[in-house]
Write a protein that binds this DNA or RNA. Sequence first.
DNA 1: CCCTGATTCGC
DNA 2: GCGAATCAGG
Length: 175
Amino acid sequence: MEPAHWPSEHSDALRDYFLKGLSYAEIGRQINARFGTAYTRNAVVGRAKRLGLIVQVRMTSPSIVPVLPSGACLILPHRPALLNLPPKSAMKPAAQVKLRCVGVQPRLVPLVELAAEDCRYPYGGDKDGEEITFCGHPSEPGSSYCTPHARLTRRAGAGSARVAGPVVLRLVSAA
DNA sequence: CCCTGATTCGC
DNA sequence: GCGAATCAGG
């Protein structure tokens, strides 16, 4: 990794997605797809936190209430009904966020030319006003995506990449 | 089992 | 500051 620091574009995208309500994993995948990076969701979370997007609730155990005035009780005098920032929970607008970027070359088929068996994997949804095209690769039966995209929707790296594991410590009982 | 969120810790 | 490892919940 050359850039030890997040480019502003990445941070901007992160903030955008974050405020949009996407999950960290999705944000990470989106950013990775768009910029060709390899941020893990951990990285996204960590970055988001450091960036100040994440609400840090400082709840230390002891003495949550520093002072307890005999008469004055500050029991939430104000009730801000709605906050500017959407709560990290209770929101699922982007149910199925499409992903992109895989080792595949999308045919970028326009919607009008998209066949029934073509992988409906959106490309170009990054920028507003940009034409959205689709992967167009033959999709798996029963799925709307081609193999790589279908699996991209799921987990990454796994699948046929179970190598590089923690070795197979094999005891050679040579004698 | 899979997923995600959030924190901690070493680099 | 960065991100992997790790823990915790669904």
